[in-house]
Nucleic acid binder design. Structure first.
Lengths: 152, 152
DNA sequence: GGCTCTAGCCGGGGAATCGCCGGTATATTG
DNA sequence: CAATATACCGGCGATTCCCCGGCTAGAGCC
């Protein structure tokens, strides 16, 4: 905290969200900075925890998981360890959001087939009642913020 | 298509999903391959579209978007262009899944504050009725598949 | 078997990059 | 004003990248 990010930092974040594997020199060129200054800023963003990592994005269909679903889980109990264990074990569960509302958890799940999805949902139903919606398409795979937040 | 991925390809995918900015030499060391063979495989995975990109992962709170919400949108019409335009313009909308079920769209939205979230939801409500759930926490920011799908 | 073709891997060498150091200009502080 | 801190640049050796040719194993064919 709590140095806010200046426009150059935002430019770096935008570029690295677009392509995280460009060289630091190339990144410097794009944000009009020398390579060493760029390196310094990126290191700073990493050590401040602003950038938490770099991930390759994979086409789920092409790696054998063509079925994508959103599963909402109504979880009455308060024993969360077994669920967390399942999340760790099952890399088919891509994302797990704990939310307000009746459905305490919203999960994004990838499956190889409908039987596979059924099996996954069955495992989740051990914990509570589930609502499953299949995903037709997703607009962008993922995107992060591109501009500083307006202070209201 | 449709060369399936061998164990070495999967090892590469796992490593690049964990840290997409390691050098190709280091990646080669981790998967027990020479740098040039590793490069060749990575290029192949990219050109096949298995790897669709590399993204820096950003801490939303630290860049000024501490409020995360799941918004489900019931969209009766079939005019999707205005919605798609909103998605492109508003980088606060991180993800948009079109799904089966009553709520045609499930969105993941980041906001700077509750008033900001309200404004975003108002914009979405132009298109249909919305259901909003705030996110307390998310287990892992994101994760992709780590193993080949079992063929059933 | 013997031949060819191909896929996949290795190694090498020049160009580019990385990591680290010192030096400079501006702003802040005592 | 002096001292410190911040952010930047440039330069140097070590590493990595990129592209090439060569090697080996396996498939297909005669």
């Amino acid at each position: 905290m709590t140095e806010s990010l200046d426009p150059t930092d935002w430019a770096i974040l935008v570029e690295l969200q677009r392509d995280a594997r460009i060289s630091l020199s190339e990144l410097g060129r794009r944000v009009s900075l020398s390579a060493s200054a760029t390196t310094e800023r990126v290191r700073r963003l990493e050590s401040l925890g602003v950038v938490t990592g770099y991930r390759a994005e994979v086409d789920l269909t092409k790696v054998g998981y063509p079925v994508l679903a959103v599963v909402r889980l109504k979880y009455p109990g308060n024993k969360h360890e077994p669920l967390h264990r399942l999340l760790r074990e099952r890399s088919e569960i891509l994302e797990c959001l704990r939310t307000t509302g009746d459905d305490c958890y919203t999960l994004k799940v990838a499956a190889a087939s409908m039987p596979h999805l059924e099996e996954l949902v069955n495992e989740l139903t051990e914990f509570g009642s589930t609502t499953t919606n299949l995903v037709y398409s997703q607009t962008q795979p993922y995107r992060g913020p591109q501009t500083p937040a307006k202070t209201l």
